[in-house]
Write a protein that binds this DNA or RNA. Structure first.
Length: 743
DNA sequence: AGAACTATGTTTTTT
DNA sequence: ACATAGTTCT
């Protein structure tokens, strides 16, 4: 079979690789090494694959799926659990292309979406029957907000931990089955003084969810686990339906998820998990990388396979990333290596300030583009969403298209939440969070008035009737009655979800136009898209649950506005959202003291996780990585503060990188403080040796990245079109490209 | 006086 | 997008 042939090829042919041509890395990815081969062809029983970054973990899983299918395992009896839905889709399409048979019937997705789907198929709507609504983080923050005022925390101001932090603590405590006390002592020691308040919040938060039929991500998983634990029938049915369970990114699972996997496989133990402890970056969410170490205890007779060969990056990048992770306190040693030599050393960029950093990145991206790297083969990564603001400005002013990942999600934007809250009260009339949102839209109704109205329906058997009997004040009577009218109309039996959507829009549009008068058209387009999503659903409950778990990601504001080829877009991403992805050229920005590690991270476990985060960022690069930091940062009181480099950078052996200071003649210290717009004059550049050489059509050439090729055309004075043996045709700019004649 | 509205400053990471 | 402080409305 195909993988066997390739395997033998790899083992016996002793293939020669061109040391200066990193191109060969991608070639060798189509072959399996010995360890991968045994993982892929492993028979029944539990398998743990521990592997480093870029070692082909995911590829091993894909090949495993293809192998199972070639051996007549029905696709619908394979369950694939991944970290993101996108990765599940990608893996299934790759498996399909490897086999003649379709892999479409493989069940795959995130834990939460799968839990939701399985519970629904078992007739347990979320395990509780109907009337429950799954909430996401922004809802949880909303609840905390409501509770904070009712508990009298409003005046605590800045000293009180942020809502986000509280949500993290509460959900972390649930995930880990850890008392809040321990969690705060271990992870958030600076919040010890608020321990009592956090305890009260936890109680109130739990009560609020129970009273209003709300359920968060963790409740969903806990219900799934409970169902499997308590019902022998459910357990038997699921484990006989899914004969093979494959799990990606196992280091990011929590205890509940590990238990679920065990329960689902209880009568066959055909579980294969892949993971890397050095890439565990979700402990704040309850992920426990000791799950990996416990796997052999949990599944007796488990085979453990280590993948240590790296197929992604060049050796200079690996030397740097190995050096980063070697400072980690706890680690399970893996030494990554690649057979391929060559490649450029990582570049450390100390920039004067954030703007200089942004400009360096923009100029360098331009340079790589001119050398023939597509925009979609580059990415800029950072610790926190707002670190990229300066860069976004710079990119926009240079006319670059980019896609930012990890910022605000569509379902977190206000207008979508508004419309969804109408749907939510239709399936769950006790959902106070949504009522609150709807009432606040009314003119002359603020938090206090909304609260009063909600009080009156709190203990009512029929919230809708209670609202009808509430006496509105004259100033907002008209709007209130319009809302009640909508309730009556949407409550009719024979309406489809998309019919209800139309009614809701009829009511909401005037309000919507008033609130978002400045960018009304953009948001309107997104709502139209939402309607087409709604139209695909027969029942409302499924739609509500799915949008909470799995925001429809194909609705992207950028795509709608520009309708651009995604290949022409640069990716800006938080490191967390970049997990599992790879690019030729990666920039990591903001590696300054106080930004990376995050300011609130305390030495110990949290500090270690920040280090792994840098490791994950740097290992995304295939050919070249730039690590940059601004030496001046803006403090909260708008003063400039000197910042050193991140302590993680200082730990790196300087032999593993080269330093490149941005050429900054046009915005040196003197012009820095002025508000003048940037100078149109480009910084002077050193010309490469290629610029002086003469190239003619037909000439054989060699490029450090693209390898051997032949000149196809000379379209301009300093431009050549080269037809590369293995990279196709590229137009190169001789001022930038390091093109050399080949003998 | 209390509620609603407006302006201004800050923002960890997320299925 | 949210929190807070200051201002206007009822």
């Amino acid at each position: 079979m195909w993988y066997k042939a390739k395997m033998q090829n790899d083992l016996f042919e002793n293939k020669q690789t061109n040391d200066n041509d990193p191109r060969d890395i991608t070639d060798s990815r189509d072959e399996l090494n010995h360890a991968q081969f045994s993982a892929v062809t492993h028979g029944d029983g539990p398998v743990l694959v521990i592997a480093g970054a870029g070692s082909g973990k995911t590829r091993t899983l894909v090949y495993r799926m293809a192998h199972l299918i070639e051996n007549n395992v029905p696709p619908e009896s394979i369950l694939l659990l991944t970290f993101t839905r996108r990765s599940a889709q990608e893996m299934m399409s790759r498996a399909s292309s490897l086999t003649s048979q379709s892999c479409k019937r493989i069940i795959g997705g995130t834990f939460h979406a799968t839990a939701n789907m399985l519970l629904r198929r078992h007739g347990h709507h979320l395990g509780f029957g109907s009337g429950f609504t799954i909430i996401d983080r922004s809802d949880a923050e909303g609840i905390i907000n409501l509770l904070k005022s009712s508990l009298g925390f409003a005046g605590a101001g800045k000293r009180f931990p942020s809502k986000r932090m509280i949500v993290n603590i509460l959900s972390g405590a649930v995930n880990r089955v850890l008392p809040i006390e321990d969690l705060v002592h271990q992870q958030h020691p600076h919040l010890i003084e608020f321990l009592d308040d956090i305890y009260r919040l936890k109680e109130e938060y739990f009560q609020f969810k129970v009273n209003h039929g709300l359920m968060d991500y963790d409740d969903l998983l806990i219900n799934w686990e409970r169902l499997l634990k308590e019902s022998k029938d459910a357990r038997a049915e699921i484990s006989s339906r899914f004969r093979h369970i494959l799990v990606d990114e196992y280091q990011d699972t929590n205890l509940t998820q590990a238990s679920i996997i065990k329960l689902m496989a209880y009568n066959h133990n055909n579980v294969m998990v892949v993971g890397d402890d050095a890439q565990s970056i979700y402990s704040f969410r309850g992920a426990d990388f000791y799950n990996i170490m416990r796997f052999p205890d949990q599944f007796s007779g488990a085979s453990v396979i280590k993948l240590e060969e790296n197929y992604r990056s060049t050796q200079p990048i690996l030397s740097l990333t190995n050096n980063i992770i070697s400072s980690a306190r706890d680690k399970f040693t893996k030494t990554l290596f690649t057979k391929v030599k060559g490649g450029s050393r990582p570049v450390l960029v100390p920039a004067l300030n954030e703007r200089s950093e942004a400009r360096f990145i923009v100029e360098t991206i331009k340079k790589h583009q001119q050398e023939g790297t597509d925009l979609c083969e580059m990415a800029v990564l950072f610790r926190s969403g707002f670190h990229s603001y300066k860069l976004e400005m710079e990119l926009t002013s240079h006319g670059f298209k980019f896609e930012k990942r990890g910022g605000l999600k569509l379902t977190e934007s206000a207008h979508i939440k508004d419309v969804l809250s109408f749907f939510r009260i239709l399936t769950n009339p006790w959902d106070n969070l949504s009522w609150n949102r709807i009432l606040l839209q009314l003119d002359k109704v603020g938090p206090k008035t909304a609260q009063k109205i909600l009080e009156s329906i709190k203990n009512s058997d029929s919230p809708v009737n209670a609202l009808f009997s509430y006496k509105p004040a004259s100033s907002w009577k008209v709007g209130y009655q319009r809302m009640l009218e909508l309730l009556q109309n949407t409550g009719q039996e024979n309406l489809t979800p998309s019919g209800q959507f139309d009614l809701i829009m009829e009511y909401y549009e005037p309000i919507f136009e008033k609130i978002y008068y400045d960018d009304y058209p953009r948001r309107k387009k997104e709502l139209d898209q939402l309607k087409s999503v709604v139209a695909g659903y027969g029942d409302l409950q499924s739609f509500i649950d799915d949008t909470a778990l799995d925001p429809p990601e194909n609705i992207s504001a950028d795509e709608l506005a520009t309708n651009d080829d995604p290949k022409e877009q640069l990716i800006l991403s938080t490191i967390h959202s970049a997990k599992g992805l790879e690019w030729d050229v990666v920039f990591v920005l903001g590696l300054a003291e106080g930004r990376f590690p995050h300011q609130n991270a305390v030495p110990g476990e949290q500090w270690e996780e920040e280090r792994r985060l840098l490791y994950v960022a740097a290992t995304r690069a295939k050919k070249l990585v730039y690590l940059s930091y601004p030496r001046e940062l803006m403090t909260p009181d708008r003063k400039l503060r000197r910042a050193g480099m991140s302590p993680f950078l200082s730990e790196i052996n300087p032999g593993f990188y080269e330093i490149r200071k941005p050429e900054t003649p046009s915005y040196s210290a003197s012009s820095y403080n002025s508000q003048e717009s940037f100078s149109p004059k480009l910084p002077s550049r050193k010309k490469t040796s290629s610029a002086r050489l003469q190239f003619k059509t037909g000439m054989k050439v060699h490029h450090p990245f693209f390898g051997p090729g032949r000149i196809k055309d000379v379209p301009g004075p300093r431009r050549v079109e080269v037809s590369f043996d293995r990279h196709g045709d590229k137009i190169l700019h001789l001022d930038y490209a390091k093109l050399e004649p080949a003998e």
